[in-house]
């Protein structure tokens, strides 16, 4: 196998898209009418937002779709400067096709600062003749109201287990790999509705062994595991604050996780901690406050360290 399967098996047209039936129907009607409003795709990772955007562009613009489809990542370039320069530059030029407009696909649009979003709103209005936007985000609530009201909003739901399973079976067959039912179930369980994750796990397992059973799947996901948030939190609870802090630094620096990513994971981990419920509630409250401080512009490392100290205290309270 030469390619990453996520790309190799990314659906080429709307009919191939897995799940999201209503959304696909609406998108097809845009293709038929050869027009579309600005779109906002909201939903968790691996549910088909990027796939739908690319498939839509392919069907609208035909063979030369790439010339009319511009992909931008808001989280890589999140400042107002990008909106004022790059996006505007591209938006104002005429469409190189007979449909009459081109598409800017702005991925992770919720990473844009409110200022940048406000600037984007004007650009969307001014150049809507020649350029339509597809904004994609995890939470539509992070997109300012005036932009939402200018878009047709589509909510992508996590994919059904059955749909993911069928897709995995198809890929495995196509690649000449044997996979057991147990292994399929394991992947589907770990992926939790995220198709990209499911396919990545499948390919990982296939890279290790030609026949894939449950054991191989867990072995593969074990290999992909790294210093994780859960072990950091547990270290802090056990009372070894300094070690927890060092591990956290590693996550921030070497793996490049953002403070917001880490705090979201901490938020998820708290529910399963071996501490009493009232302490959990207190910790959740602290976590929310710390996330707010980070969003407000504080230094993520210092804030996360402060949060870890609370876990150490919670661990101390448990001992008594």
């Amino acid at each position: 196998m030469e390619d990453v399967w996520v790309e190799k098996y990314r659906p080429k047209n709307l009919d191939e898209v897995i799940g999201q039936k209503e959304i696909v129907e609406r998108l097809k009607s845009y293709v038929k009418a050869k027009t579309m409003p600005h779109l906002l795709f909201a939903g968790p990772a691996g549910t088909g937002k990027t796939t739908c955007a690319i498939a839509l562009a392919r069907e609208l613009f035909g063979e030369n779709w790439r010339a009319s489809f511009h992909e931008l990542n808001a989280s890589d370039e999140r400042g107002i400067g990008v909106v004022r320069t790059k996006i505007k530059e591209y938006a104002r030029t005429a469409a190189p096709n007979d449909v009459g407009f081109k598409i800017i696909f702005l991925d992770e649009a919720d990473a844009l600062t409110p200022d940048a979003q406000a600037a984007l709103r004007r650009t969307m209005e001014m150049y809507s003749k020649t350029c339509r936007f597809i904004l994609s985000c995890n939470y539509s609530s992070k997109i300012i109201e005036p932009i939402q009201s200018r878009c047709a909003v589509f909510r992508f739901a996590p994919l059904r287990a059955e749909d993911i399973k069928n897709r995995l079976k198809y890929i495995a067959e196509n690649e000449g790999k044997k996979i057991t039912e147990d292994a399929l179930d394991a992947i589907v369980y770990i992926a939790a509705g995220d198709m990209r994750k499911a396919i990545n796990i499948l390919q990982m397992s296939a890279a290790i062994s030609d026949t894939i059973d449950e054991g191989i799947v867990y072995k593969a996901t074990g290999l992909a595991k790294r210093e994780d948030v859960e072990s950091i939190v547990k270290k802090a609870i056990s009372g070894d604050f300094v070690a927890a802090r060092n591990k956290l630094n590693k996550l921030l620096v070497e793996y490049g996780l953002s403070g917001e990513d880490i705090i979201k994971q901490i938020h998820r981990v708290i529910f399963d901690l071996p501490i009493e419920d009232r302490l959990k509630v207190e910790l959740l409250d602290r976590t929310g406050e710390i996330e707010f401080r980070i969003v407000e512009g504080a230094n993520e490392r210092i804030q996360l360290d402060a949060l870890l100290a609370y876990f150490t205290l919670a661990g101390e309270k448990m001992k008594k």
Partner: peptide, 23 residues
């Protein structure tokens, strides 16, 4: 390659890609 941001890659793709690449 994956049509996504650097952050998303580092957080959710690289751990898997690493294993695939290595094997």
């Amino acid at each position: 390659i994956y049509h996504t941001s650097r952050n998303e890659i580092l957080e959710n793709v690289l751990p898997y890609f690493r294993v695939i690449y290595d094997n």
